[in-house]
């Protein structure tokens, strides 16, 4: 089937089999390999992208279902060389190690903050329940999302909790650790 979709600002039109998973179309068809695949059962969330402004797991969507959609992947999140505040916060708060879950985790976090600009720690944890990480124990991911939330609200990043931090960020909210 012929499908057209916009991915990270570029419109593509391709012939795909109906069974082609969106995630395979992005990776193998369009070369947008920034979005990885971590499972077969839609549990891990590594493949999370945004379709028409909503986070979805691209392994559980057929490419034909995304015909006409506007898709943003991790590769389209930054504005040119300016990272999205969530991307910056993940680095600043060491919210990643091996980085395999990170594209999905960041896309899920961006979606979460779109819907809830001032989440509590508990809301962040539950908001990311569909994304598994095996490296970080989630604590720094949660902190990164809270910090990005603060940044996006115009309140600046929250304080890092790390001793001897490289570039301490100003303490503007009551982060504790």
């Amino acid at each position: 089937m012929r499908v057209s979709m916009k991915v990270d600002g570029v419109t593509y039109e391709d012939e795909v089999e109906p069974r082609t998973l969106l995630t395979h179309h992005l990776r193998d068809g369009l070369g947008r390999v920034g979005t990885p695949i971590g499972c077969d059962t839609s549990n891990c969330g590594s493949c999370t992208v945004s379709i028409d402004g909503e986070s979805v797991k691209s392994c559980s969507v057929l490419a034909v279902q995304a015909a006409g959609a506007d898709i943003t992947t991790i590769q389209g999140l930054a504005e040119g060389s300016e990272w999205h505040p969530v991307q910056k916060a993940f680095q600043q708060h060491h919210g990643l190690q091996c980085g395999y879950c990170t594209p999905g985790m960041i896309m899920a976090s961006v979606d979460l903050l779109t819907r809830n600009p001032s989440p509590t720690e508990d809301e962040v944890r539950h908001g990311l329940e569909g994304n598994l990480c095996r490296c970080t124990g989630y604590q720094n991911i949660v902190k990164a999302v809270l910090s990005a939330a603060s940044e996006l609200r115009g309140e600046g990043p929250i304080a890092g909790s790390f001793r001897d931090a490289d570039e301490p960020v100003p303490a503007t909210s009551g982060a504790s650790s």
Binding site: V33, P36, Q75, Q87, F90, H94, L96, G99, D166
Partner: peptide, 23 residues
């Protein structure tokens, strides 16, 4: 030594420019 440097690795990982084997 002992400094909390943020990681050099992260630039590629947070922007999806990683070279996984399947890529």
């Amino acid at each position: 030594l002992g400094r909390g440097r943020r990681r050099k690795e992260d630039a590629k990982l947070v922007t999806g420019q990683t070279n996984w084997t399947d890529n």
